[in-house]
Amino acid sequence: MIKYALTCDHEHAFEGWFGSSADYDDQHARGLLECPVCASKAVRKQIMAPAVAGTRKTVQDERAGPPQAMMMEALSRIRRHVEENFDDVGDAFAKEARAIHEGRSEERGIYGQATPKEVRELLEDGVPVAPLPPEPPKKTQVN
């Protein structure tokens, strides 16, 4: 696994894990990379120093498990919690999030779909929004 420090055209910094450098290049070329903050598809690698792996494992390393598996499990739990406890407002997400923020609608957790433009406008207006973690890939889709 390779961890890249990534950034979008709005300078949101985040990390991405890839099976190989070629996997990053392929996903980038197909437009599959997206900023988790604003959903921008204009994503690029940040300059980073290479990580040098040691030869000895610590006890903590052995107990923790693979970082990607732990991250995918945590993201799956977050998504499951949102789907079970929040209202799905579908493509009316931007309208409903703004109404809740302005006090015109009942305060509650919601999720749904919004365009990158709608997300940018909500963020610019101070409406707190965050992307829902993606569904975990099926075992047959993992390389």
Rank of each mutant, 00 (worst) to 15 (best):
F93M: 13
G112E: 05
C38T: 14
G109D: 09
K3H: 01
T55W: 07
K95H: 05
V127E: 03
R120G: 12
A92V: 09
V129A: 10
Y24F: 14
G126P: 07
A5D: 14
M48D: 03
Q27R: 15
V82W: 03
E96R: 10
V37A: 11
K45H: 02
R30C: 07
R56P: 07
E83D: 09
A64S: 04
D125M: 10
I2E: 06
R120H: 13
A5K: 15
D91T: 08
P133V: 06
E83N: 07
Q68N: 11
D25M: 09
S20M: 01
V119M: 00
I110L: 01
Q46V: 09
A74N: 12
A51I: 15
A92T: 13
G126H: 04
Q113C: 12
P137A: 08
K139S: 03
G19P: 00
D88M: 06
C8I: 12
E83R: 11
F86C: 02
D91H: 05
Y24T: 07
Q68P: 05
D26T: 11
F93G: 08
F18K: 05
P36D: 02
C35S: 07
P133R: 08
D23K: 07
Y4G: 02
A13V: 10
T7V: 12
E118T: 00
P66Y: 08
Q27S: 08
A51H: 14
V142L: 14
A49V: 13
R44A: 06
K95S: 04
R80S: 15
A94N: 00
M72C: 08
R30Q: 14
G31F: 00
V129K: 08
L122R: 00
P128N: 02
M1C: 12
K95V: 02
K139T: 03
R108Y: 02
